[in-house]
Design a protein around this nucleic acid. Structure first.
Length: 143
DNA sequence: GCCAACGTTGGC
DNA sequence: GCCAACGTTGGC
C-alpha cells in the first residue's frame, strides 16, 4: 500500500468538510507532478490530509476510495481527480514545523517542495508521522 | 525553442 | 501582506 499527503486550504475545503460529506472528489489539481501522483494512487491507499495556508499541519487520515478518473471541474479533460473518504482524525496535528525539525522527515517532498499539493510519503515516514500524531499507522476502517 | 513577464501558491 | 519558488504564457 502506498501513502500520500494531500494539501487543501481549509477555507476552501477542510478536514471537517470531508467528514461532513463522508466522501469527496479530490479535484482541482492542476500540476503535472501532483497529477502523476493522483494517477499512481490505488484504491485503499492512505493519505494524510494537510491544512495549508493557516494551520500548516496534518489533521487527518484519508483513504483513496476510487482511483483516478477525469476531473469533473476540468473542461479540457486533461486532469484527473480521485475520490477520498475520511478514516480518522489525528489526536494531535503534526505541524510543518515539527516535520521540518525532524531529520528523518527532511527528505519528504512536503518539506522540500512546498508548492507540490499531492506528494508521496514513504512507509517509514508515514509510521513516524502517525506516531507524532498519536494514532496507529495501520488502523482499519472496519468497512 | 528561448526567455522575459506575469500569475499563483504557500510559507513566513 | 510580503516574497520566494515555480509554472505558464506569449513575443520573438
Amino acid at each position: 500500500m502506498a501513502h500520500w499527503l494531500m494539501k487543501s486550504e481549509p477555507d476552501a475545503f477542510s478536514w471537517n468538510d470531508l467528514v461532513k460529506k463522508g466522501k469527496s472528489d479530490w479535484d482541482g489539481v492542476r500540476n503535472h507532478q501532483a497529477s502523476a501522483n493522483l494517477k499512481a494512487m490505488k484504491k485503499g491507499d492512505r493519505a494524510f490530509f494537510y491544512h495549508s495556508s493557516q494551520e500548516l499541519a496534518v489533521v487527518g487520515v484519508m483513504e483513496i476510495a476510487r482511483e483516478h478518473y477525469p476531473d469533473p471541474t476540468d473542461e479540457t479533460g486533461k486532469w484527473v481527480a480521485v475520490e477520498v473518504k475520511p478514516v480518522m482524525p489525528v489526536k494531535r496535528p503534526v505541524t510543518l514545523k515539527q516535520m521540518k525539525a525532524e531529520p528523518k522527515l527532511g527528505h519528504l517532498m512536503v518539506v522540500r517542495h512546498s508548492r507540490l499539493s499531492v506528494s508521496a510519503v514513504d512507509g517509514k515516514a508515514w509510521a513516524l508521522i502517525c506516531k507524532m500524531a498519536g494514532i496507529k499507522a495501520n488502523s482499519q476502517t472496519g468497512s
